[in-house]
Amino acid sequence: MFVQVFQGRVADVTEARQALDRWARDLAPGSHGWLGTTAGVTADGTLVAVARFESREEARRNSDRPEQTQWWMETAKLFSGEVAFHDCDQVDVYLRGGSDSAGFVQVIEGRVREPERVREVLRRIEPDLDGCRPDLIGGLAAVSADGGYVETAYFSSEEEARQGESKELPARLREAFEELMGQFEGAPVYHDLREPWFYSP
């Protein structure tokens, strides 16, 4: 799997939603290797979109389509500043992966020192997460070649997610989380999508 993320400030949430709806309606049927997109706008007006593809090559084929270029030229006008892109070849799915039934999605962004170490820790804690956090449906942890990290976590609801966060973790899981947080260069940024938008083939 390959993950492409783009994000930036938008002034009009409705127009942003309409742009992604238009892509799903008009461009998705002819897309190459597209597996789905999770998007939304945070409380501070940041649009975050996480698109999943079968491979980098398929994503590139999609980007090269004239209709894709035209769509992006129009959509880019909705952003009030710079748009950041993250292309991630290392993608790990944990628990039940993404879900279009999630009521709350959190996108965690940062930079990690040792991507393979992060992958190992995530695999190690997955069985414990399943029993300890029933609010967590699953997610995707994606890392780019330069260590950029984007995790998309899907929860049943924000209320249940906050309740889950407040629980005291078992010692083994707490230690693993501390190890994971220690891999970040600086503090990660959390983007809360309280009204997530889901698009699937």
Rank of each mutant, 00 (worst) to 15 (best):
A43E: 15
A43Y: 00
D44T: 15
D44M: 11
D44W: 10
G45Y: 06
G45M: 03
T46Q: 14
T46M: 15
T46C: 07
A49S: 15
V50N: 06
R52Y: 00
R52D: 10
F53E: 02
F53R: 06
E54W: 07
E54G: 06
E54T: 15
E54R: 13
E57S: 08
E57D: 08
E58G: 11
R60S: 12
R60W: 13
N62L: 11
N62A: 12
N62V: 05
S63L: 13
S63F: 04
D64P: 00
D64F: 01
D64T: 06
P66T: 04
E67V: 03
T69P: 01
T69S: 15
Q70F: 02
Q70L: 04
W71F: 13
W71G: 00
W72R: 04
M73W: 01
M73F: 07
E74N: 08
T75V: 12
T75I: 04
T75H: 06
A76F: 00
L78T: 13
L78V: 05
L78K: 06
F79A: 09
F79Y: 12
S80T: 15
S80Q: 14
S80Y: 00
G81A: 15
E82T: 07
V83R: 02
V83N: 00
A84W: 01
A84I: 04
F85K: 01
H86Q: 10
H86M: 08
H86I: 09
C88N: 15
C88R: 08
D89P: 02
Q90D: 15
V91I: 05
V91Q: 05
V91M: 11
D92W: 00
D92Q: 12
V93W: 03
Y94A: 05
L95M: 14
G98Y: 01
G98D: 04
S99P: 05
D100Y: 01
D100M: 09
S101G: 05
S101P: 00
A102V: 02
G103M: 03
G103K: 02
V105C: 09
V105F: 04
V107D: 08
I108Y: 06
I108D: 02
I108W: 11
E109R: 14
G110P: 06
R111P: 00
R111A: 11
R113E: 08
